[in-house]
Design a protein around this nucleic acid. Structure first.
Lengths: 202, 202, 202, 202
DNA sequence: CATGAATGAGCCTTCATTCAT
DNA sequence: TATGAATGAAGGCTCATTCAT
């Protein structure tokens, strides 16, 4: 009994693992090369999966891109979940900024994964992937808005917009100029800004 | 003789006009569709030039992209030149922000022409087009830095970075969320910020 | 012990049932979609059998097509066996025509199962399936020839050919024109023709 | 002037010739192999055109099939136009039958070009090619109906249906049985039938 | 210089068939 | 026997680029 279960479980586990490998590879390669320049073969190679087999897990290339997107969303949620353990909303926001700065090398090389993806997908008409990318960014906006709200600040959503917008801007510039230092500098500015905000709860 | 001259002149003029039409078309279409999704045929059609003829003016597709890039650089210079007529650096910077907000519909649909281009080109290794895109953004940074410097503010280049970064961020978010309102809101914030900066020259 | 026996028996019965389900599904789906447009997966789905399992019962796709063919042959024999119960050969032939007309909706949508299959398989070189299809049609020719012979008519095989040919023609036209009425009209004509034939036995 | 005209003409002629070659090759190869088993490469090879170039003339494979269909329609009209020169409608109809019988070898090998095409296309849902095939067959029905009408016979369209139906049936059987003799025998029967019809105009 | 046509490499996707358990 | 997964060979189609005139 347990053998059968194990057997099935192992197969399922393998299948899931492969799917996961493909998703992760898609997220990584698409971040690095962009959607259009990324080949199914590229992703298959990165995931060490035969090309033809990719289609067993993802019906189309767009499905893979969607998976990459949700992988980024997942990474985002992992981060915010971790930050949520911090007691103070302001600390959480500063932790977010710190995380961004921590990724400065990647950002300087390839930009923000979600932002560049949204940018590229935004130039499409069909598929609905652009909307999907927008949703991932909204996750971040919502979380940040929640923190600002907890701080009791007026217009928390506006503040979130400013924060996330600053992140996207600094990522894009760091990337365009190939200068991780942009992340450091603007990150510090954001941290200072967060510190400067009053805490009406006092 | 004069006929021949006229003919040549007219041809030359025509030729120049064609080149210009192609450049403008490339800038427009690439902004809308992105580099990879844009076909030489797309640009040729938009410029009303036969496909085969494009290659007389541009040796490769990358040359056309470079032309699109310089077209954006040119547009940028036209704008800053106009703003330079304003007497006050602060007014010039606010004029820049106003210009950005004025393009909010386009930004919400396709993002910042230069920013999205830089983002897409940044995912390439070869060609040097990424560097080219960086240069165009630097033009903007330099101009803004110049204004902040004229205002006598400390760290003018840092302020320029913050300003341009904010622009790229708000364009990307407006685009990702398909909300021109982001441009309006963040534009107002930038204007307020510019107004809030001291003028050490006083 | 009896459990094991039952189990085996049930399995065997199940296995046979599965084979039968696959055969029936193949006949149906191939009739509807044609050989080339039909996927093993299509048939497996229609038979509610896992794809991988199909190959336990049929070594190749062609084997499945052959099974579909013999399924049609079987259906044909079921029909002629039923008609054979009628006392008069002329009644039997008219019964055949009536059966054809009874299938007019299916014929108008997908043509004669055997005829369209023969037509498609006829465009192959290898495999011998074309011959197989020819044999099924010959079954019909033989049966009809037998009836005409019993009627004592001269050239009974020629009459059979004319009859079956008319059936194939009207099926094809009904299908091409998507008009079941063709079956009705030509069926009536065939019935009248059968009635008009003399009965030399009188 | 004439040089330019010639030059353009020659190019146009070449292009047209190539298109024509592709159309003819498509008609031929599709007749022999069927739609699904025919690859673009097959047609390209038969027309001696590089594969990639095919798409300059035909946007999709279906376009090529449509071209093959209209090629058959064209052949049909060439035939009927020739027959129209005969003074008597009955002679024209008998001429049609004779033409069919003349093609018996091809019919025995590959069936009626239009009929088998209609049969294969009829198993599709999309594309509208099935309808197109139906139209080609209607051309034949209409012409035949016109002849019967000129003969002053009652129900001329019904007679046309019977005639064309007989043709499709005998082609299919000749093909399925691989016996050109079927065409001869049934052709003779049709000729006799046409002769047996009264001429109400007498 | 202009232009329709040509070329070929490459990409996404499908599918019959096989494998591992 | 059963079954999800794996594999690899095509096939349709696109497109940057080149050619011939």
């Amino acid at each position: 009994m347990s053998q059968v279960a194990d057997s099935k479980g192992s197969r399922a586990r393998t299948a899931t693992a492969k799917r996961q490998r493909l998703t992760a590879a898609a997220a990584r390669v698409v971040h690095q090369q962009g959607v259009e320049r990324t080949t199914i073969a590229d992703i298959a190679r990165a995931a060490d999966v035969p090309v033809g087999n990719v289609y067993y897990y993802f019906k189309t290339k767009d499905d893979l891109v969607a998976a990459a997107l949700s992988e980024h969303a997942h990474g985002l949620q992992t981060l915010t979940t971790r930050l949520d353990r911090l007691p103070d909303p302001r600390q959480r926001l500063k932790g977010l900024v710190a995380a961004w700065v921590g990724e400065r090398e990647l950002a300087a090389r390839y930009g923000c994964p979600t932002g560049t993806l949204a940018s590229e997908l935004g130039k499409r008409d069909e598929g609905g992937l652009a909307e999907e990318a927008g949703k991932v960014i909204r996750l971040l906006l919502d979380w940040a808005g929640h923190q600002f709200r907890q701080l009791g600040l007026p217009d928390p959503d506006g503040l979130a917009l400013t924060l996330v917008s600053a992140y996207q801007g600094m990522s894009l510039l760091a990337n365009a100029l190939r200068e991780p230092g942009v992340m450091t500098r603007e990150g510090r500015r954001l941290t200072d800004w967060l510190d400067s905000l009053p805490d009406p709860r006092d």
